[in-house]
Write a protein that binds this DNA or RNA. Structure first.
Lengths: 210, 210
DNA sequence: ATTCTTCTGTAACTTTTGTTACTGAATTAG
DNA sequence: CTAATTCAGTAACAAAAGTTACAGAAGAAT
């Protein structure tokens, strides 16, 4: 645990804070697809992501989803932070996009560390800042872009976080995360293929040319 | 200044913090329509809103806007907080929706107070929490609702923050804040009027029935 | 091997949203 | 008062997105 922690957060946190994290944090390893948190859940602790990618989703009244953003190594779920401080329920769903390793920090430590460690304060504020900016980009994409552009961004981003030009998803799954319909996505994907940007296969898509 | 401050923040902050705010804060009064901050601006300080309403907007590549949310009495701009701590530029535009009074806090005090005052920490975290939740609602609305529903929500919210069932805006202005077109908004407004929900006039709209 | 299920492609159609164009009414500027 | 401008209503059309329906291919289950 110390090794992973130092690799992801060593430059960020002072040595003493790292020591405290090791003392009170619990290590957790989850497989891709694991649901880390659901809408309405009370948050038990704050996660520090040391390996892998977590996707954060929002749900509509019908129970359909929309991908909000990905959390990567060295990041945390800002939603969790305020939720556990105020003891409110989660407004989002978090699912491991890849196999992931995280360290769970007990709620009570957060308040304490915020007063005690400057590096923790900076980390917390930076997390909020990053999250708000991610949300702005999400809004930009939904409000300003047409579906073809959103789809392309989605594929690029997915390839990036998975570090793989092959995207293992069905059209249906992609439609779901973009809150669209399978037929629309198939149509647009075919267009992208005709433009030479991607290559379509059953159950996977290969990105050819940005 | 002390009176307004106590009215909006008296229950929130301990007496000593209030005293410090009075010492270092500068009082600012702006008329409706005043641009408090623009995209790309460096943030000089953190605003505490003591009276009035501020609208926060996002801009697309063509320079058209989208209303994100309103800030009300007792709130602050979370965007400002991290921006001024990290010295990054603003990603949003802030315009006084009504005449407004605010107290500007110098950047350097923020770090200090975060370590020193528990009430300040709570306020800062709560602000972030509220802002993230507002952003989620904005995303819900854009991603999940049709324009007629968004328009209705817009009118309701606008009436609420202005505490007035008469909305003094042209169709063009409404279209702009919803990132739509004037003709579309006129069409949908007429539908709402036919349903007996609103009453249309030149330069203003009256809300009749929720 | 045969059946069943899932995935993709496509056509045909509807709904929603956006665009262009024009009108007359209300308001403002000169 | 007259001319110019702004605002709202509407029609006609175009583009984007969503829906329904169906078919064939791939793969899984039996």
């Amino acid at each position: 645990m110390i090794k992973e922690l130092k690799a992801s957060y060593g430059d960020l946190f002072e040595a003493e804070l790292i020591k405290e994290i090791v003392q009170v944090g619990t290590f957790k390893e989850v497989p891709a697809g694991f649901k880390l948190m659901d809408i309405g859940d009370y948050i038990r602790g704050m996660p520090l992501l040391v390996l892998g990618v977590i996707k954060v989703l929002r749900e509509d009244k019908e129970g359909d989803e929309l991908l909000l953003y990905y959390l990567e190594k060295g990041e945390t779920c800002s939603m969790s932070m305020t939720c556990c401080m105020g003891q409110t329920k989660s407004e989002v769903r978090a699912i491991a996009e890849t196999d992931a390793k995280l360290i769970m920090i007990p709620i009570r430590k957060m308040e304490e560390w915020t007063a005690k460690y400057k590096s923790w304060r900076n980390f917390v504020f930076e997390s909020y800042h990053n999250r708000l900016n991610e949300m702005l980009l999400t809004i930009d994409s939904i409000a300003f872009d047409k579906m073809d552009e959103r789809l392309l961004q989605y594929l690029k981003e997915k390839a990036r976080v998975n570090n793989n030009d092959v995207i293992h998803n069905t059209h249906k799954e992609i439609a779901y995360e973009l809150h669209s319909s399978r037929v629309v996505i198939s149509r647009l994907l075919k267009k992208l293929e005709n433009l030479g940007i991607i290559e379509l296969h059953r159950n996977y898509i290969r990105i050819i040319n940005i």
